[in-house]
């Protein structure tokens, strides 16, 4: 049984690509056969986040136009042999692919993979329509900000209008110290507004920046974000995993703790 999951948000820069890279890698670490498809034609990025930018020969548009076979365009991950990336084209635009072509491509991949993860571009135009065309399930990534949540709400409406029923939320880049002092909306506030199921909470974590710099997904690593992504993967596979408690200390308390550790 294969599942096609689209990672979307509406707003740009909230962490769709990072989420795709980490969920793809995490599911592969659990032994699943996974392919990630970058559907952001013209602005490809999943390749650099995965550290696979030097291995691209063919891309999504080549496959759709019949210049190569799917197998030739898929790049095998350097860490996990059961993880693949189908990169997007950098020099073309969103209209190079139609929703029907995307659906056909995704359906062909179902035989071979347990999970097909689509990294959706920002916006609600053609690129978004392409990405959601063949999806069974959607993960909405949002940050606890007015603009991101507003866009997420719009995306949820569009997905529901497209008969996509399984929609779950990842609240990304949350800062518990700010939530605690009332300067950031809490996960409950976000859920109250968007009224969809929660599948994960990822804290704002510097290790994400480091991981992206190095082109190494951090899922499963000993960091708060790494554990958060690991939990999302388990929930995707149907496990019941409790939501973790994050460190609520601000920078001041962290410094005090550092000093205490010294003694």
């Amino acid at each position: 049984m294969s599942e096609v999951i689209v990672i979307t948000s509406g707003k740009g820069g909230v962490g769709k690509t990072t989420t795709t890279a980490n969920l793809g890698t995490g599911l592969a670490m659990h032994g699943k056969n996974v392919v990630m498809i970058d559907t952001d034609i013209g602005l490809r990025n999943l390749d650099v986040v995965m550290g696979l930018e030097n291995r691209i020969v063919y891309n999504l548009v080549d496959v759709v136009e019949g210049n190569c076979r799917i197998k030739q365009a898929m790049i095998k991950d350097k860490r996990h042999p059961n993880l693949f990336l189908l990169p997007s084209a950098q020099t073309r635009d969103k209209t190079s692919v139609s929703p029907e072509q995307m659906k056909k491509l995704v359906d062909e991949l179902r035989d071979e993979f347990d999970y097909i993860i689509l990294d959706c571009p920002a916006g609600i135009e053609q690129g978004f329509k392409n990405a959601i065309a063949g999806a069974d399930r959607a993960i909405i990534v949002t940050t606890p900000e007015v603009s991101a949540i507003r866009d997420a709400d719009r995306i949820i409406g569009l997905l529901q209008a497209n008969e996509l029923k399984k929609i779950e939320l990842v609240v990304n880049r949350i800062r518990m110290d700010m939530v605690k002092r009332g300067d950031m909306m809490s996960v409950d506030d976000v859920l109250d507004i968007l009224a969809i199921d929660l599948i994960g909470v990822v804290p704002d974590d510097e290790s994400i920046v480091v991981a992206t710099n190095e082109g190494e997904p951090l899922v499963g690593s000993d960091s708060e974000a790494g554990r958060a992504y690991e939990n999302i993967c388990r929930r995707l596979m149907g496990e019941q995993v409790d939501f973790m408690e994050f460190n609520t200390d601000g920078i001041f308390k962290k410094i005090i703790k550092l000093f205490k550790r010294g003694y």
Binding site: E145, R150, M178, G182, D183, M184, M185, D192, I193
Partner: peptide, 14 residues
Amino acid sequence: SSGSTAKDRLKFVL
């Protein structure tokens, strides 16, 4: 707090 201001503004705009 600015968090609850954000939530109220968001509710209104939505």
